[in-house]
């Protein structure tokens, strides 16, 4: 079950790009709280603490805002262009009795039979979109793949999920598969390497006429 993390937040007075840049330089992180038809509150959070919570996969927070407590769920996280630094966090107000839609990491555990035989495991879906009660929200969903044979696959419908959780994705989607590594293809002939791509829209007849002209041009340049 998801644990609620406690975090101290302060209301943010100055808004806009430049004010937020200055804020980030001091080790703080801008954020916003909204939802439940109440006021939108721009806030400031400690960046380091927030980063640690996100690395642990925490979804649910108990924000202490000027002595007032707000139970919130992370709605959106923005990173910089390299995906390295946190830029902004959106929080949505939630009730503990509410059903919410969240993305939860999907972890595969164990070594499959296929991998033992020399196959490579490929995880196609790394996170599941689920709908559940706030109090029943898992931090992570783990699936045991020890029985997965070579060329086998696991679909969303094969996952064993805790009670009360509904997956919002197509149940026929493939989560992971094990396949043998393909042999490297032999080097094609050198002629192919020198070939130029076909030009769309240029008719073959024209090509025949133009090719000598092109060659003449190239020769003239030399």
């Amino acid at each position: 079950m998801a644990k609620t993390a406690e975090i101290q937040a302060k209301p943010r007075q100055q808004l806009g790009t430049r004010a937020n840049r200055r804020l980030r330089a001091t080790g703080a992180l801008p954020g916003v709280i909204y939802g439940h038809k109440q006021d939108v509150i721009p806030i400031t959070l400690p960046a380091k603490e927030m980063t640690q919570h996100l690395e642990r996969g925490t979804h649910l927070f108990n924000l202490n805002l000027d002595g007032r407590n707000e139970t919130v769920l992370i709605k959106e996280v923005q990173y910089d262009h390299l995906g390295k630094e946190l830029i902004h966090v959106d929080f949505a107000r939630v009730d503990l009795t509410e059903r919410v839609k969240v993305s939860v990491p999907l972890e595969l555990k164990g070594e499959s039979i296929g991998q033992k035989e020399g196959g490579v495991l490929q995880q196609i879906i790394g996170e599941l979109e689920i709908e559940c009660l706030v109090t029943e929200m898992p931090d992570v969903i783990r699936h045991d793949i020890s029985d997965l044979p070579m060329d086998g696959e696991v679909r969303i419908s094969d996952l064993k999920l805790p009670a009360g959780i509904r997956v919002l994705q197509d149940p026929s989607l493939i989560v992971c598969s094990v396949h043998a590594v393909r042999e490297e293809e032999a080097e094609p002939a050198a002629e192919a390497a020198a070939a130029e791509p076909e030009v769309i829209g240029r008719k073959k007849e024209e090509e025949g006429e133009e090719a000598p002209a092109d060659q003449k041009k190239a020769e003239a340049k030399k």
């Binding site: 262009h81 390299l82 490929q122 791509p197 076909e198 030009v199 769309i200």
Partner: peptide, 30 residues
């Protein structure tokens, strides 16, 4: 063999400028 398109609309292109950051293909997906 190095990669190259199979079909192109134009044989030659201008050099262009590279502005801004990647907004697609900027996370580990596969």
């Amino acid at each position: 063999m190095p990669m190259m398109p199979k079909r192109v609309k134009f044989r030659k292109s201008q050099r262009g400028k590279i502005k801004g950051n990647a907004t697609r293909g900027n996370y580990v997906a596969f």
